[in-house]
């Protein structure tokens, strides 16, 4: 597929993946709550919620900083799409940057600014608390995340996504870098403030950063959040799960299957665990997860050196 065609296909795939996330989320929520049946209802539910937000009235609050709030919402969506641009759909990516790994990292930290801005904009106390919770969360997940993705790049000796995929022709990185893979999955949930890490939008802060959003604003914000989750799950595939490698199916299909598998895992994790409070998680992240990823990076570096030096 030529690059221009891929650029057009990517948004469609992203939206479809967001839809799948919403449907799966609904199904699992119903199952966790003990409701029987209604699978058909779960299929229609995302459409109903979207219609509700489209037809809803937008609102704002007194002394709100509308510009910053809009910048947050727009930034989240744009960054998610750009982050997904480096994922190889099959063998080639819409934009196969030579520094794809660092690019993904740069685009996902836009979420830090975005959620803080959305929490700040409405000039509302609990909304602000939600925004700050996300900054605390960011500080907690970012370093293990960076070490995890650098470990994958280290294993392949390159920052380019397609090189990392090529290096996994024999064995997936998730198999011999399990700590990095686990840290990456946790940070993927944390960066999209999803699942056990959705304290910034928590019920105990009345919706947190999204508390004062309604109508199209809310739709775009929630959509941007799920887009970021999809992008993070999609990037896990070339980094740790071998990209398009696999028997029988074409590479593009494998990428799709693997992305959906990672998304299913993340959605399941959301319903399996209660929300993690940042004042409890930060210590675990810095004292347990960070040394773990550093040791993992060291182990991978030793393996690479023993293999005869990884490098171009």
């Amino acid at each position: 597929m030529a690059a221009p065609a891929m650029v057009l296909v990517l948004p469609v795939l992203l939206v479809a993946a967001v839809w799948c996330v919403a449907v799966l989320d609904g199904v699992l929520a119903d199952r966790a709550a003990g409701h029987r049946g209604g699978a058909g209802r779960s299929l229609v539910r995302p459409g109903q919620e979207v219609a509700r937000l489209l037809a809803g009235q937008r609102r704002t609050t007194q002394a709100a900083d509308g510009l910053l709030r809009w910048a947050g919402i727009a930034g989240l969506i744009v960054a998610s799409v750009l982050a997904a641009g480096v994922v190889p759909l099959g063998w080639k990516a819409p934009a196969d940057l030579s520094v794809g790994v660092v690019w993904f990292n740069a685009m996902e930290v836009v979420a830090w600014a975005a959620v803080w801005l959305v929490g700040w904009g409405p000039d509302s106390a609990l909304s602000l608390v939600g925004g700050y919770r996300f900054v605390a969360q960011g500080l907690a997940y970012e370093l293990p995340h960076m070490f995890a993705i650098i470990t994958a790049a280290l294993g392949a000796g390159s920052l380019r996504m397609s090189d990392i995929v090529d290096a996994q022709a024999g064995l997936w990185f998730a198999v011999w870098m399990p700590a990095a893979f686990a840290a990456y999955l946790l940070s993927a949930a944390a960066m999209a403030f999803w699942g056990p890490f959705d304290a910034p939008l928590g019920r105990d802060v009345a919706g947190g950063a999204a508390a004062e959003l309604s109508g199209v604003d809310r739709l775009l914000f929630e959509g941007g959040r799920r887009l970021l989750l999809v992008a993070a799950a999609a990037v896990a595939v070339p980094l740790f799960l071998g990209g398009g490698h696999g028997p029988w199916l074409p590479a593009g299909a494998w990428v799709l299957v693997k992305t959906l598998a990672v998304l299913a895992l993340l959605v399941w994790l959301r319903h399996r665990l209660p929300v993690v409070r940042m004042d409890r998680w930060t210590e675990i992240s810095w004292i347990v997860l960070l040394p773990l990823t550093m040791v993992q990076a060291l182990a991978v570096a030793l393996v690479v050196l023993a293999r005869g030096g990884g490098g171009p």
Binding site: A29, A32, A33, P196, G202, H271, L273, V275
Partner: peptide, 12 residues
Amino acid sequence: LAVAGWPGPAAR
């Protein structure tokens, strides 16, 4: 459970 952010068991 609902305040702790675990809606499944809370609904149960």
